[in-house]
Amino acid sequence: MKKLGLIIGIILFVSCSANRKGAGFISDSGLKQSNFQTVVNGKKVSLYVLKNKNKMEVCLTNFGGRIVSIMVPDKEGKMRDVVLGFDSIQDYIKYPTDFGASIGRYANRINKGQITIDGVKYQLPQNNFGHCLHGGFKGFQYQIYDARQINDQKIEFSYLSKDMEEGFPGSLTCKVTFTLTDDNAIDIQYEATTDKKTVVNMTNHAYFNLDGDPSKSNSDYLLTINADSYTPVDSTFMTTGEILPVKGTDMDFRVPTAIGTRINDTSFVQLKNGHGYDHNWVLNTKGDITRKCASLKSPKTGIVLNVFTNEPGIQVYAGNFLDGTLTGKKGITYKKRASVCLETQKYPDTPNKPNWPSALLKPGEKYFSHCIYKFSVEH
């Protein structure tokens, strides 16, 4: 009888494991893997799950190297999905967005879509107010990464961006590694090499909603940015080349401040130009990955997101262009300012501003960018 019980136990374990990893599994966030399994541009696409000992869960897809869901506990211990996204790969294909994507070849904007390397001018796509945004019309967020799940807490996405793809010189071999740690952090590391001089600036474009309720806006979220200065923009969202102090302005988040406190102050030209917050801050952390560069907190759920990076800047985008036309996971409509993006990166248009930290990558060098999104709760 004991032997029979053991056999039944083994069968049940195998069955559960097969269901978890098989085509039909459903994640804790409610995502069906079968809704993500297809072929795009001749490459297989799927949904992948990372989970740690605390039952935190991160779901990703190799379509654009995207974070699809993040389940973390709130102050009551209830698990909440804290990022925007879609329930199926077909929606990601049908509705071009940056939700959760690994952005490249160059995150943010490049002025008039033009760069010059060694006297040679390259024209890139002009897909945003006459500028090149997030790598162009066919940036990395719309490409299929090759996926290799290393273990239950780590996955590696790799992609070869060919010479002159979207106008960028050099064949770029890049890799993005996501590790879910046991202290509830998502450790993201970007690496790249090239066979020709080029520019590289990668980031993650997760849209965070720490209430776990995207039907609500971000106005009560407390934002802190460890930065004494920022890079102002003109009416086309292009950086002017200036670096200005935040002191005495609506850009000062050196102490925790509710996002909604000043975001609609159009008398301040930067908020008028950005339609709210959509700016790069010059970090005081100076590349030290051990120092917190930004923090976001939901007073409602107590969920706190701390950000660490080796990059010199962070773009904070407050979801100003969400307009209720997109319906995301669980049938929830994403309205204006339903989230906050915290994109660690080089400054926008760095290739055309030689005094700013360089984004140039040469053959024989390795590009390395590091970002950590660490979650916790405060009661």
Rank of each mutant, 00 (worst) to 15 (best):
S171A: 08
L172Y: 03
T173H: 12
C174W: 01
C174V: 05
V176P: 01
L180P: 01
L180D: 05
T181G: 01
T181H: 00
D182N: 12
D182F: 13
N184R: 10
N184Y: 10
A185V: 07
I186A: 13
D187R: 11
D187M: 08
I188P: 00
I188F: 00
I188N: 07
I188V: 03
Q189G: 08
Q189P: 00
E191L: 15
E191D: 02
E191C: 14
A192R: 08
T193M: 09
D195K: 08
K197M: 11
K197V: 11
T198R: 01
V199M: 00
V199R: 01
V199G: 06
V199T: 15
N201V: 01
T203Y: 01
H205C: 03
H205M: 04
A206F: 12
Y207W: 02
Y207N: 05
F208N: 06
N209H: 05
N209P: 02
D211G: 03
D211I: 06
D211P: 05
G212V: 06
D213A: 08
P214R: 04
K216F: 10
K216L: 06
S217T: 15
S219K: 07
Y221P: 04
Y221I: 06
L222K: 04
L222H: 02
L223M: 06
L223Y: 10
T224N: 09
Y230H: 14
T231G: 11
P232R: 03
P232A: 09
V233N: 11
T236R: 12
T236G: 14
F237G: 10
F237V: 13
T239Y: 00
T239M: 02
G241W: 04
G241M: 02
E242P: 11
I243M: 05
L244W: 08
L244V: 10
L244Q: 14
V246T: 15
K247P: 12
K247W: 12
G248I: 06
G248C: 10
T249N: 05
D250F: 10
D250T: 10
D250G: 03
D252V: 06
D252P: 01
R254P: 11
R254Q: 15
V255D: 08
T257M: 15
A258F: 13
I259P: 10
G260Y: 11
G260D: 08
T261N: 09
D265S: 09
F268C: 06
